[in-house]
Design a protein around this nucleic acid. Structure first.
Lengths: 242, 242, 242, 242
DNA sequence: CATGAATGAGCCTTCATTCAT
DNA sequence: TATGAATGAAGGCTCATTCAT
């Protein structure tokens, strides 16, 4: 590849990043249906036609945005999975990265909700569909690897035989906690002050519920959190007050 | 009020019910943005103008649909809260009614998701906003009453001092489990077969996690479920196979 | 039907006529692809939405325009077929109505050319497709009836056994003559002065070619033309100079 | 001109031929409005910019395609005009080449129809407009030369004094027959089986109608056709079955 | 000369809302 | 009160043309 071809390719990638970046912003602000390609074009200071050189349809673009975020999440999970410690400490590091992701991708759950529509996927390109599935698998396996270790090592009780059920618990509770924590009515009724604390608490509760040792009451997880932060996420801002 | 005025009022209420009934059906099928008032008018066999005699805007209508569903949920919770038994059994009855609601209002979570948009609430009428808050409060208090009883009676450990945190755990996990259980990718990765079993399992895990006695392993909850079903939800279909 | 409903229906029909009238004008001026519904709406002084209350798609509208013109042609043919005289005189009356139609629907052939695209018909409504076929049949049978009479009466030679071939000759020659007569290059090369004379001449040539009696040289067709004009088309303008 | 300049010129001509060749294919498949220059560029494996080095606008390109086809037609006519025989046999050879052209340029009439739009010609270059007129003239004079010979030799009756009228008859009938023969509705109503037979029949009818000797019934034209085919169009495929 | 990325005007279609009857 | 015809703004997508490299 010639020097200029390399530069072209780099510029193309940069522009795709720019589209995805502003696209995510507008998508989170307005939702999928109200996402306006005219406004996006204005924001990136390129023409609408240029957006269509990168994405076949609006759905394709949206899926691109979702996949990019999912990849970042999978990357965070992969980093977290390297944390040295007990399996319960390691799953806590995953929980930590979930929150890190939620903070840096505020309201991103809304985007994931859109992806449920069947008609949506039909209009996205095959490549992007596969890319999305790939990242989803990476996230899943980062978690299930730790759960399997916990079963093998006896950190989870012997009656826990299907790791996927534990993974599902963790994902569902985390997702639900994030969503619930930003609902104004629930904030009021349940006295939610910040969007992270209740998520982490519920992750602990679920681990305890599965009997994942050492239980919350039997270990100083504050010290673990300090290690996670220092070793894995030295740049995280949101843990300052916890 | 004259006799004819009473009849008029009754007819008006019936028509509003009809709008909400078909509105919910179309809303769940198509989503908010694709909800078409022409089609709704055709379905109810009244004119579009008539819909506007009941609802100020499309947002107002949608909020009306959401509130009506929330009222049904609050009603289910109220019935469940009357169940006689330990606090853990009573909260299980609430969990049961959650699933009952989810089954009879399949995909209703999508509607609740829409309600997060700020611009949405701005276009709804004040009366309907208040009505929605009222029903949300009814749901919350049905649950928190049981949690408070559990704290008082010692079924929850003494270190649990803020009932709202327990309520939030339950709501968040239940909501998240319902949503996660219908995601095709998670169904595949986690081996989800039906949309109810994982929800109920996670509710149990959370209660165990909070140390709510008697724990899952210490009590025959299958027998409790049979009682709940017989006494509270004699018509529920979905528990047949559990 | 109530009085007001009748009035509404009449207004609706009038508006559809208005749309078809201006639609034909713009269609002939710009062609199908350049027909602009915004401009049409402006021309009829109704909104674009109103056009869509009458026609499902742009293709549907175009087919509506074509069918309306075809109906007028079929009506002209029907009137012409009533002319009293020899079969050759009667087919001449049909030819007369062809020209009458061509004059009042100048350039209408362009519209018929569009109808060949398959994708076009797919987007038109079934009703309108059937209506178009109906009118085409009416035109055909007006001609073939006379040809069959000519065969029976011996005005056409006995070796002419398939009337449809004669009909095809007449239609093809007439259509081709109309098209050719408005081609600037052919006008120049062939010395075409007006768009009607060569059409009528070619119709005569074809009838003579089939041996349809009485031949052009054996009869005073100028007198027949005068009768046709007086009896069938008293309002025709274009024959003045012939 | 230098050797390399000659090579360049030859390459340029070859590329223009390539553009016209694929352009005609796409033009016939999609029509003028749906002709896509991106697809054409992909087909010729040159860039879109290169197309614009040869043709000023899309209209200019289209006219180029039409002119190239017209030149081929004129070439066919010229070959046919060399046929040795009576004037009626020679005009038959022209008719033969018309059909040969129609078969090898199926649906080419659609392209010619486009050329009628005034706005079309405005956007084409002067050179190409003149080139088109030149080929049209060649076609005309091939035919009119034979007609003039027929008048001089007495094959056409003495009352036929304006050869252009005969030429116009032949052109109009041939064109109309080709168009009519591919209309689905007319195929159905008139029982058209193949697109060539009715064209040739109508050409005969028109010649007979003008009294061009020897008339169809007075001569074995099947033998003439065999000679035309053998001497002028040894490669023609479509006459096999006639 | 050859390229192809970038442009942006243009257009069909939808649908929430209004209002005269 | 109930209607439904009429509105018109909005938006996704296309593609001929340009021009910097």
């Amino acid at each position: 590849m010639s020097v200029s071809a390399i530069r072209k390719e780099r510029e193309r990638t940069a522009r795709e990043e720019l589209i995805l970046l502003h696209g995510r912003r507008l998508l989170l602000r307005d939702g999928y249906q109200n996402l306006n390609l005219d406004e996006l074009a204005r924001a990136i200071e390129y023409s609408k036609g240029t957006i269509y050189l990168h994405f076949a349809t609006k759905e394709d673009l949206t899926l691109g945005i979702a996949t990019r975020a999912l990849r970042e999440r999978a990357n965070l999970f992969q980093r977290a999975a390297l944390f040295k410690g007990s399996t319960r400490e390691r799953i806590r590091a995953i929980g930590f990265s979930c929150c890190e992701f939620a903070v840096s991708h505020r309201d991103y759950f809304h985007v994931e909700m859109m992806l449920k529509s069947v008609s949506f996927w039909e209009k996205a390109s095959t490549e992007r569909r596969q890319a999305h599935g790939l990242e989803a698998g990476r996230c899943f396996h980062s978690i299930s690897g730790i759960v399997e270790d916990a079963i093998r090592s006896g950190d989870l009780p012997s009656h826990v035989t299907r790791p996927a059920e534990v993974v599902f618990s963790l994902i569902a509770t985390t997702m639900g906690s994030h969503i619930a924590a930003i609902q104004p009515e629930l904030q009021l009724l349940c006295g939610i002050q910040d969007p992270i604390t209740p998520v982490r608490r519920n992750q602990d509760i679920v681990c305890d519920g599965w009997g994942w040792k050492p239980l919350s009451g039997d270990w100083n997880y504050a010290a673990t959190d300090a290690r996670i932060r220092a070793e894995i996420f030295p740049d995280a801002q949101w843990l300052n007050n916890s």
